[in-house]
Design a protein around this nucleic acid. Structure first.
Lengths: 198, 198
DNA sequence: TCAGTATTTTGAACGTGGTTCAAATTGAAG
DNA sequence: CTTCAATTTGAACCACGTTCAAAATACTGA
């Protein structure tokens, strides 16, 4: 019975991220409360701190899942779009990004909100998840700018991702943008439609 | 001596925003503490709540100033650039935006961080300040796309602002972007340089 | 099986921080 | 100077993340 405690610990970790995911999705990461989480997971308040260092670590665990889902959604959007021109593939991915953000706003926000708050270095898997996203963008961009070097292409990839991210971010903040959600796609197309050589 | 209390109250409000501005600029809006603020302003803890509804209201007051400074910086960047082509003017404004954000990161972040947190409606002057920024962008955009209607131009203005905002936001988050600050200008130019008719 | 030891779980308690409010202080009026 | 209203004060309240000594549980050897 050596793995019994291990298994119980793992089960608790699992229950905690699941409960946290539900709460973050519903109320946002800022509304996550240790006491609520303990209740949801059916454990003692202190047990949370046996499973994770602190609440931030749990949010990070949720972010890990969210990144997976986000990455899958973006990749699926161009899974069978090889025949489409590169600009169109960029637009497809961006719309998938928008859709994911719109349907999972709080979880998606947690992905980027956390960075601002926490001081320490971003975990490695975080950066790698981002690189994964960038890799998908890099393919159409490389097709669009065959002449450019890797350096400049890499910057362009980040610039385009950041642009779409900004459009989605402010666009979903209805109170600021005043733009109805269905217009966000138009804005993305307006910007990405311009991208191309010469 | 009718206006005496009024004046004292106004003076306290002033001291509070000034102290808050200094603290937010140094440590970020999230690190603002009521007790520190009271000490800085030389008033009792409770006095804060005579002058303002809550800490959020003080941050909003600071944001009001920040918006003024930001608007002034952006306008100044194209003050005597009428002879420049529209794309160049967009780049000038964007670089001014970047520069302001880089030099006043915490104050600039507070401008957008707060929205996420607070639930209530955004105050009117907030939206008007944004409209003021948009108006500056609208001029070059209208020159670039003389054929487009007001509707589409308005969307494009928001799309471009959001794009630059996104590039600056993620670019300054060094831990995420991994891009050195001086490259952010390059990314802005990469995207804005593409904008133009047909 | 059981006593003894190690490990895990528990939740009361601590520290921090925003906000409140009864009491003290200050200012206005007679 | 006295009285009354308004303002100012800071101790106290509550919510929350986190800790840690004690209780519960699991493991080991006889």
């Amino acid at each position: 019975m050596a793995g019994k405690v291990e298994a119980r610990k793992a089960a608790l970790r699992e229950k905690l991220v699941e409960a946290a995911e539900i709460r973050i999705a519903r109320d946002g990461a800022g509304a996550l409360r240790a006491r609520d989480l303990a209740q949801d997971a059916g454990c003692a308040l202190g047990a949370i701190y046996n499973a994770y260092d602190d609440l931030t670590a749990i949010i990070m665990a949720v972010n890990g899942r969210t990144f997976q889902h986000l990455g899958a959604a973006v990749e699926a959007s161009v899974a069978d779009a090889d025949h489409e021109p590169p600009t169109q593939r960029l637009i497809l991915m961006s719309n998938a990004y928008l859709r994911f953000a719109a349907e999972n706003t709080n979880l998606w926000r947690a992905l980027f909100d956390l960075q601002m708050t926490a001081e320490g270095p971003v975990p490695d898997w975080y950066l790698q998840a981002l690189e994964g996203l960038f890799a998908n963008i890099a393919r159409p961009v490389a097709e669009l700018f065959p002449g450019k070097g890797a350096e400049e292409t890499g910057l362009m990839v980040r610039a385009l991702f950041s642009s779409v991210h900004g459009i989605v971010l402010l666009g979903l903040e209805r109170r600021i943008s005043g733009v109805p959600p269905e217009q966000i796609e138009t804005m993305i197309a307006q910007v990405l439609g311009q991208i191309g050589p010469g």
